[in-house]
Amino acid sequence: MVSQEVASLKDVWAHYDGVPALEGITFSIYKNDFLGIIGPNGGGKTTLLKIMLGLIKPTKGEIRILGDTPDKQRKFVGYIPQHSLFDRDFPASVWDVVLMGRLGHARRFKNYTDADREITLNALKTVGMLELKESQIGRLSGGQQQRVFLARALVTEPKLLLLDEPMASVDVALQTGLYELLERLTQRIAIVMVSHDIGAISIHVNKIACLNRKLFYHNSKEILPEELEETYKCPVQLIAHGVPHRVLKKHQ
C-alpha cells in the first residue's frame, strides 16, 4: 500500500530582501514519516516550516498540504515554534494556553465544548503537565513550557506536526519520553522536526534530510557524507543511528 502524501513542495524558493533563504526545495512527506531536518543556523529551517504553515509566501514554487494550499489546511497542521514570544506575566494558565489549540476546531462566537476540554485534559496528561494546569504559563521552566506547547500542538489533532528545535530546553531525561510519544504519533500522522544539532536527531526519526538553503533528501534515513559536509561547510563525523552496529566515518 502506498502511504498517503501529507505535504509536497515543488521547486520552492524564498528570499529575504532579495537574498535567497531557500533554493529550489523539492520533497514530499508521507503519513508515518518522522523526518528530521538538520542544518546550520541560518540555513533556512525555520523559513521552511513557516512556508509550510503559510506564514511566509514563497517567491517561487508550489506547496501542497493534504492537496491544498497551506493557509487553507492550517487546521490540520500542528506547530511548535522555536521561541514563543509571549509576555512572562501574561495572565493565562497552562490550561488556557493548551485550550487555545482547539480554536481551529471550535465554533466562532461560541464557547469551547466539553469535547474540547476532554481533548485538552488528555493532552496535558500525555505530556505530564496535568498537575500544573492552573499555573501561570510564564512561571514554568523552559522545558515545562515546551511540553505545554507540545500539548497545545497535539490538541489541534494535526495530520502534520512541525517542530522547530523542540528539545532545545528540555532535560535529557524528558527528551526520551517525548521522542517516544512522537514516535507513537507517527502511526497516525507525519512529523517534521528541524534542528541545528546533528546529535539531536535521535534514533527515533525514520528519515533524515540536510538543509542549508538547498535540501539533500533521498526519502530515507541515509545521508551521504559529502552532502553533510556540503551542508555544514566543514568535515563532519558521521555516526549512523538505529543500526545494530555503529559506523564512524573517517575524515577524508
Binding site: L53, L55, R74, K75, V77, Y79, P81, S84, L85, F86, F90, A92, D96, V97, L99, M100, G101, L103, G104, A106, R108, F109, N111, Y112, R152, T156
Partner: peptide, 22 residues
Amino acid sequence: FLLYKEFLSLSFDEEFATVVGV
C-alpha cells in the same frame, strides 16, 4: 463576549493564533 477566546489567543501569541486559523 462573542470573540473572547479569539482575542485571548491574539493577545497571547499572534503567530499561533494565525496557525490555528484565527
